[in-house]
Nucleic acid binder design. Structure first.
Length: 392
RNA sequence: GGGGGAGUGCCAGAGCGGUCAAAUGGAACGCGCUGUAAACGCGUCGGCUAUGCCUACGCAGGUUCGAAUCCUGCCUCCCCCA
């Protein structure tokens, strides 16, 4: 049973709402009591081009601190992205090209401002201080021991399973910790999988004679499969820049079991269990659309959704695919081009009755159609892919 | 420095000379059911203008009528000893 995470770490402040833990006990209250604005750090490694709802959970927490008058320090980990965070990893992370990291950094920052107030956010890239001469790097890393780093679960598990752990990965916590020194962090936020990194940063700060930061961890948001962590690489994410129709559709496909967590982490309210699950899910989906795709987009997306799935209508805004008029059209080829699947796949789908033209299933043995019969019609592939065929 | 083991499809993991486009499970996809939820049932899951053809089992060669399966070299990973 998961759901209520509110009282973690004994922090009684409103700002700790939803957090899994706030460590060490009392540290946050103590700092808040000082009355000065705290420097609240959140680091995100730009390993993918888009921010999704999983990132939003922790960004939203940062926004709350911001709203309470504290300083939001958003670190784009353009340098640590090159190293690769071993947290929760069971294998070596593939390396990203520098240009890729650079492009991701830009979109990340832009998209983070869909949650944060840009005027009250200090954005830093950690290459500013981590891109240092090796002599300085050595001086930094010699402060810590291998035994201390190997305490972490991910490493011991991988080593036990005879899987590789690179030297570079071992360095990751040290680098992330040094970020805290560089930005003089009072509090660092992160997902629960970041606990080791966040706590290790305290050691790094201490070794530099700084006051160690408090840390606050937030629950991990499951992806649209309802089970695994939301992530780009698992393909179970909802991006904040996606069109409302996508956001709505994806959220509706999230299993009911994950709804309490979605409500708590994304809407900031407890799910009212007396509501019909379908209605509660629609409500959530509308709110998220309104927030990220623009006010009112939720209702519009919902209407479109119902037209397609309840009334079985074809969407008016389906992408357009042009064909030449004259002669027959070979359906597998058309599907391949229109939907970006392979020709073999197209044939299989056809054979499985997954192709509809204006709502009518194409017979499995039908491979060619006169082009005249296709012009102006909507081809549907499976439940949610649509293309409107238009004469060229 | 010495000794041993392993690299198979999106992932995990069988296969160990022909019947292998490669068992099985998971993921994914499709159809049905439904609340585009879950669960369940059935099916698909390399490519190709397709009853056949092509490309594939770390990479490169070789042996064989025939290789994922045998040999040689290379690359990568792991373990043990020092």
């Amino acid at each position: 049973m998961r759901g209520s995470h509110s009282e973690g770490g004994g922090a009684s402040t409103e700002l700790a709402l939803g957090a899994v833990d706030v460590l060490p006990a009392g540290a946050l209250e103590e700092r808040l009591a000082s009355g000065r604005p705290l420097r609240v750090k959140l680091g995100i490694d730009p390993t993918a081009p888009d921010i999704h709802l999983g990132h939003v959970v922790v960004l939203e927490k940062l926004r709350q601190f911001q709203a309470a008058g504290h300083v939001a320090v958003l670190i784009i980990g353009d340098y640590t992205a090159r190293v690769g965070d071993p947290s929760g990893r069971s294998a070596l992370r593939p390396l990203l090209a520098p240009e890729e990291i650079d492009a991701n950094s830009r979109t990340f920052q832009e998209q983070a401002f869909k949650v944060l107030d840009p005027d009250a956010t200090e954005v830093r890239r950690n290459s500013e201080w981590l891109d240092m001469p090796s002599a300085e790097l050595f001086a930094l890393v010699r402060r810590f021991t291998v035994a201390r780093l190997l305490e972490r679960d991910d490493f011991s598990k991988r080593m036990a399973a005879a899987e590789p752990v690179s030297l570079l990965e071992l360095l990751y916590p040290v680098l992330q910790g040094y970020d805290s020194v560089a930005v003089e962090s009072d509090l660092e936020l992160g997902g629960t999988e970041q606990r080791f990194n966040l706590l290790f940063a305290r050691d790094v700060q201490t070794s530099f004679g700084r006051e160690p930061q408090a840390v606050m961890t937030m629950p991990i948001l499951p992806g649209t499969d309802g089970v695994r962590k939301m992530s780009k690489s698992l393909g179970n994410y909802v991006g904040v820049t996606e069109p409302a129709s996508e956001i709505f559709g994806k959220l509706m496909s999230v299993p009911d079991d994950a709804m309490p967590l979605y409500w708590e982490l994304l809407v900031g309210e407890r799910l009212d269990r007396s509501r019909h699950p379908n209605e509660a899910k629609r409500d959530l989906a509308r709110r998220i659309c309104d927030r990220f795709a623009g006010p009112g987009s939720g209702t519009a997306a919902e209407e479109r959704f119902d037209r397609i799935h309840l009334d079985r209508e074809t969407p008016a805004d389906a992408p357009v695919h042009r064909i030449e008029i004259g002669g027959d059209v070979h359906l597998p080829a058309l599907i391949r081009e229109a939907f970006g699947v392979s020709g073999s796949e197209a044939r299989r789908l056809l054979a499985q009755g997954a192709v509809r033209i204006d709502g009518e299933t194409v017979p499995a043995d039908r491979l060619d159609l006169p082009s005249g019969d296709l012009a102006g019609r909507v081809i549907q592939l499976g439940r949610r892919r649509f293309v409107r065929v238009v004469p060229d």
